[in-house]
């Protein structure tokens, strides 16, 4: 397997096309990860979400440092 590091533009393109990501936050050394519908803005400075107040919001209020991940299986075959 070859691992190809994606350029900034490839990352932005992937972020623009995916619909669901995984939002990870942490509190008191305990990670928490949830799937999330999202939309990225044109400048890719922000990822927007809409939710109801619950565990992830409470955790992110206490620790706003988060990770957000998207993934996709693009192609199994070469050429």
């Amino acid at each position: 397997m070859f691992i190809h590091e994606m350029s900034a533009s490839e990352c932005r393109e992937a972020l623009a096309h995916a619909r669901v990501g995984r939002l990870a936050c942490a509190r008191d050394n305990q990670p928490y990860i949830v799937p999330m519908n999202y939309a990225a803005d044109g400048d890719y400075l922000y990822v927007y979400g809409f939710t109801t107040v619950g565990q992830k919001v409470e955790w992110m209020r206490s620790n706003p440092l988060v990770c957000f991940e998207i993934d996709d299986v693009v192609n199994h075959n070469i050429g």
């Binding site: 994606m6 992937a14 972020l15 992110m60 998207i70 993934d71 299986v73």
Partner: peptide, 10 residues
Amino acid sequence: MSVIVFGQYE
């Protein structure tokens, strides 16, 4: 393919 964003909740 996977992309990881590091950021701040607002």
